[in-house]
């Protein structure tokens, strides 16, 4: 500790001094990095300590989702045409990639809710809660990538140079999910409706996105393949995996860049909303 550090609290809106605010956000993100790491380790150690199956729970949801569609397809109930890879591999990679997105989407409001007791009583860099949650998302994404690798090896899917683009594609998925997640956190911590709506919306959204079926060209599904912002992300990520040419790179970069901007705006909104949220969280 060098010079004495001064904090001033006034009712003045933070946006009146945007430069000061951005600097403070940057400072807190930096100051909170160690805490974020601790919180991540804590959640990682504690998360599965009281379970029998342990980390299997991290794999299970996408596997079950994929199994459902593989079953429907194998029985001829659905007739989804996929090019280049067996349907099972297609569905598995799709749900695993989709789960990476959903994880990132749920993470901010979940970690914020879990940290409630601390947030209302202690002043610490609040961004650390979001960062700790994001580390967990990264960790889970890594687990899913291991599964995806298993799928690729099992079905002997040819590897092409486009695989090198996969990390960027995953990053795009994470950014999009996190952007939405950060944005809805203030609302979901005020109103419980948001937390209840997320799983329903996410489940439905998966069916509106080419996750277990290839992008369509006609009808509403075709329109959605173009205008659903997650479509280009999923399509690109899967094309990397299945040695297809990357067909929607333009929209992919557009959505990813947009997501990064939304994350920044979301962090600003988060900081502004924080005292108002804490005021109403009691404790």
């Amino acid at each position: 500790m060098t010079s004495i550090h001064r904090k001033v609290y006034t009712p003045e809106p933070l946006l009146r001094h945007p430069v000061v605010m951005l600097r403070e956000i940057a400072q807190d993100v930096w100051a909170g990095r160690e805490l974020a790491w601790r919180l991540f380790l804590r959640d990682l150690r504690a998360g599965y300590r009281q379970t029998l199956l342990g980390y299997v729970w991290a794999f299970l949801p996408p596997l079950v989702a994929a199994a459902t569609f593989i079953f429907l397809q194998s029985q001829g109930i659905t007739r989804i045409e996929v090019v280049g890879v067996p349907y099972a591999a297609f569905a598995l990679t799709g749900t695993l990639l989709w789960q990476i997105f959903v994880d990132a989407l749920v993470s901010p409001s979940a970690s914020f809710g879990a940290a409630k007791a601390m947030l209302v009583k202690i002043n610490f860099p609040r961004e650390a809660v979001l960062m700790g949650g994001f580390y967990m998302v990264l960790f889970n994404a890594a687990i899913r990538l291991v599964l995806i690798a298993a799928v690729v090896i099992l079905w002997r899917i040819p590897v092409s140079p486009s695989l090198a683009f996969l990390p960027v594609a995953i990053l795009g998925l994470l950014a999009a999910g996190f952007a939405i997640g950060v944005f809805i956190t203030p609302i979901s911590s005020l109103y419980g409706d948001a937390a209840r709506a997320i799983p329903i919306v996410a489940g439905f959204w998966m069916l509106l996105t080419p996750v277990v079926y290839p992008p369509q060209t006609g009808g509403i599904a075709g329109w959605l393949a173009t205008w659903n912002p997650i479509s280009p992300l999923i399509i690109t990520a899967r094309e990397c995996l299945t040695a297809q040419p990357l067909s929607v790179l333009g929209p992919f970069f557009l959505v990813t860049a947009g997501s990064l901007i939304v994350i920044l705006l979301g962090l600003i909104g988060f900081r502004i909303a924080m005292p108002h949220l804490i005021e109403r969280m009691g404790g």
């Binding site: 001064r6 006034t10 002043n123 005021e279």
Partner: peptide
Amino acid sequence: NGLIKPDHGRIEMNGR
């Protein structure tokens, strides 16, 4: 402690 904002006035805290 800086957990919530005042509606009027000003608070200055110096130091840790």
